[in-house]
Simulated assay, not measured.
Amino acid sequence: MNNVRIRRGTAAAAAAAVVVAGLVTAAGPAAAAAPCTPKIQVLGALTPDTYDPDSVQTQGVLDFGAGNLSVGVSGGKPVYWTGTILHKVPLADPNAGGRVLAVNRHGLMVGVLHDTAGTTLFSYRKGAAAVTTLPGGHGYDMEADVNDAGYIVSRGTPGGVVWKDGVKVRDLPVPADAGPGTRIEMVTGINGRGDVLGMAEQDYEVPETGQHLQGSHPVLWPGDGSPARTLAPSGSGTLESSHVQDIDESGRIVGYDWRGPWHEYRPFVWTPPHTGPGSSPGVLSTHPYGTLEAISPTTNVSVGTAKFHPESMTLQDQAQWWPGSGPVLALPRLAKDAPSTADAVTDDDRVGGAAVNAKGRLKPVIWTCASKQAYSPGR
């Protein structure tokens, strides 16, 4: 979701144009590939957890920073790692939960806290004594992202918001081409040039006819200051929801659509200039459903999770890897037949996520040299 990484690991008027200009930064070249050893690196973790395919996971790597810095969640708490060593984000309320959703190459993190006051957005720098709460950053099931210029994007009150240095600098409006009754549901990504990605949801009954207009559309707020616009959804936009998760430096967008009964997901990609609907690379050969959660900044590699419906779990969920063309491939499990997920990917061929070990415990993990580990599974 930023220059370094993934996801998750997210965000138009005369005053806004000044802000937009600050959002635009030149995208650097892909990092040179360094020698590595293909392996599944298990990171330090807080209280051991089990995997629940029907819930947000309490362990996992959600984004990568510079060097050996990664961020995410462990034991339901916001954490970060240097190599395999875990560090807790300092919280005023030790009972609060949350997660670090994204980090940029300068070590600026963004995450969410869940406590008695509700859900709050925060920023944090490695080594700081406390987090910084971001004004207006409240909501349920919040997503967020940060780019290397330090701009943080998320859903706020009432719509999308951009912050810089802990101060709100811009609102992200509902696109003019959206229909009545549309609101910003999520803001999920920002790239180096300042393109912001999100999702709008419409729920409106036409007074004259009683017709119920309902559906979801991806939204793009271009970094060049041009007006926000809706993108064609992955499906009909009525009984399906298009979840856009991440955007790379070229503007390529990944996500998934949701169909019918719970967890019937299908990976989707939207390519510039975004004049048509998204397309699907298909699913892993062993699973009927799946997601794309993150895309690397410049190498076109995407990752996500292959799924079954929780009530018909023929095979456990499995982390999946897609190079941008051809079939979706699997990443190896940490233990035989044990579930795994992928939520972050870098230009230097690392994938972050979570996996269950032989003792049944969910652990945060990193696949190194992921392209050398990806394989086509048999049925």
Rank of each mutant, 00 (worst) to 15 (best):
N2Q: 06
N2R: 13
N2S: 04
N3G: 01
R7W: 03
A13E: 12
A17H: 14
V18G: 09
A21I: 00
G22E: 04
G22K: 10
T25L: 10
A26E: 08
A30W: 01
T37I: 09
T37H: 00
L43Y: 13
T47D: 04
S55Y: 02
Q59N: 02
V61Y: 10
L62A: 05
D63W: 10
F64K: 08
S70N: 05
S74D: 13
V79Q: 03
Y80D: 13
Y80H: 15
T84G: 04
K88M: 07
L101A: 01
N104F: 06
M109R: 00
G111I: 14
V112L: 05
H114W: 08
D115K: 11
T116A: 13
Y124I: 03
R125N: 02
V131C: 03
T133V: 12
L134G: 05
P135N: 04
G136Y: 12
G137Q: 15
A144Q: 08
N147Q: 10
A149K: 09
G150R: 14
R155A: 14
R155M: 00
R155F: 11
T157W: 08
V161K: 04
W163N: 14
K164G: 10
K164L: 15
G166F: 11
R170W: 07
D171N: 15
P173C: 04
V174N: 10
P180E: 07
R183V: 01
E185H: 12
N191Q: 08
V196H: 10
M199K: 05
E201I: 05
D203W: 11
D203G: 12
E205C: 05
P207M: 12
E208K: 15
L213I: 15
Q214F: 12
V219H: 07
P222W: 03
P227N: 11
A228E: 06
L231I: 08
L231A: 08
P233S: 12
G235K: 11
S236E: 09
L239M: 13
L239C: 14
V244C: 03
Q245M: 15
E249L: 04
S250A: 12
V254E: 11
W258D: 06
R259E: 09
G260T: 03
P261N: 09
R266N: 09
W270A: 00
T271Y: 13
S279C: 03
V283E: 03
P288T: 13
I295Q: 09
N300W: 01
V301N: 00
S302K: 07
V303K: 12
H309F: 04
P310R: 07
A319S: 01
Q320V: 12
P323V: 02
P323N: 00
P327W: 13
L329N: 05
R333K: 06
T341Y: 09
A344I: 06
A344Y: 08
V345E: 00
T346H: 01
D347N: 01
D348C: 08
R350Q: 13
R350M: 10
V351P: 02
G353E: 12
N357G: 15
W367H: 03
W367N: 07
S371V: 01
S371K: 10
K372Y: 02
Q373M: 02
P377A: 07
R379G: 07
R379M: 07
